[in-house]
Simulated assay, not measured.
Amino acid sequence: MADHANQFLVRFWGVRGSIACPGPQTVRYGGNTSCVEMLVAGQRLIFDGGTGLRALGLALLPEMPLEATMFFTHSHWDHIQGFPFFVPAFVPGNRFDIYGAIAPNGSTIEQRLNDQMLHPNFPVPLQVMGADLKFRDIDIGEIVRLGDITVENSLLNHPGEAIGYRVTWNHHSVAYITDTEHFPDRLDENVLWLARDADIAIYDATYTDEEYNHPKTSKVGWGHSTWQEAVKVAKEANVKTLVIFHHDPIHDDAFMDNTVANTDKAFPNSIVAKEGMVLNALDPDARLVCNPA
């Protein structure tokens, strides 16, 4: 991690919502569910553990022993299903600090990650993981300090609750805002607070406005937002770079190409997330470090 001591990089390992959708129609943008890695001031932060976490874990094997801090927005399946397949968690000598808010039913993030690995849902329990796992409950609004890095959070509008995060280091910030549904008559103050003056704001834009408001297949109440709302947030919050994220599994590469064109017209400093994409939070003139074909 020494090579990253003066860097603030954001790498996307999973960019989909709801369910993984690998296949020839999603190969360019990717089919894995939510997982974002940040390399900040020599530390590794991991946001969510969807199926993209499996790929991240395999990539990290040559770097062991390793340490990382993990932050979960919530525990819907598309954000935790990769955790039982995160190979570094099974290896003694590795250490992971794992943060998540207590759910409305009172369950901790440790309980929820444990429960998905119980019989009859999984062959081995969480306790077989050999790494040092430290589970930490986080309060809404609590600030986590990791050396010079601060991680803030705020409540989002999502069934069963979810929280968004804001990572700040060296006067630069990245907001991770998924899963959340916009309000019909106003912008969400919690979302605006997370995204305020952010160098990069990653936003849940699962639907288009047309899909969200469709008279026969309305998505109102499903807990997700649209790219049009993402643009409104970016403009109001003075975001430098907007990242469209949490793509609907039915949106193939051709559909996502169209989203790229539309968001670029509406907000030129926008990027549609792809698996393997790497962004530089410190340099707006060299933001895109890696953009897979």
Rank of each mutant, 00 (worst) to 15 (best):
A286T: 08
G82L: 09
F255P: 02
T259F: 08
P125A: 12
K235I: 14
L146H: 03
I140P: 01
D97A: 11
V167D: 05
N258Y: 06
F255D: 09
H74I: 04
R196C: 01
H214E: 12
V220P: 00
A261Y: 08
I46A: 03
E110M: 08
A103I: 06
D264G: 10
P120D: 08
G30Y: 08
N262G: 14
P184E: 13
R287V: 14
G14D: 06
M38K: 03
N32K: 15
Q7C: 13
C290R: 12
G221V: 05
G42A: 07
I98R: 01
G82D: 04
N94M: 07
G164Y: 01
L279H: 10
F12H: 15
H76T: 13
E211K: 07
E67N: 09
D179Q: 11
E37S: 12
A89I: 04
S75V: 15
H158E: 09
E181S: 12
G52L: 05
N94V: 08
A175F: 01
R166M: 04
A293E: 13
Q25E: 15
S18M: 13
G276L: 08
C290K: 12
V167W: 05
P92K: 15
A195E: 02
T241W: 15
D209M: 05
A281C: 09
T208H: 02
G223E: 05
A5D: 14
L118G: 06
K240L: 10
F12K: 03
A103R: 13
E110F: 11
H79R: 13
T259H: 03
E110W: 05
L9T: 05
G49W: 01
L56H: 06
Q43W: 03
L113F: 11
D132M: 09
A175G: 08
G49H: 07
A103D: 15
T259Q: 13
N114H: 14
L53F: 09
D48M: 04
P284M: 10
F71H: 07
I98W: 01
T73M: 10
R196H: 12
G141K: 09
S173K: 03
L146R: 07
A55Q: 11
H246A: 14
D185T: 13
H246K: 11
G30C: 03
N238G: 14
I271L: 14
L192H: 06
G52W: 01
Y165C: 01
W193S: 12
N105K: 04
L156W: 02
F8I: 14
L66Y: 02
S154I: 00
L155I: 05
G100N: 06
H182K: 06
I98L: 06
V289P: 00
L56Y: 13
N213S: 09
E110L: 11
N213M: 05
F85P: 03
L282A: 00
P268K: 07
G50N: 07
G31A: 05
I138M: 12
L118T: 15
F183E: 12
N170L: 11
R287M: 14
H247Q: 14
L155G: 01
M256W: 01
D132R: 15
E236C: 09
R28E: 12
A175D: 02
K134V: 15
A2W: 07
P120E: 00
L53G: 06
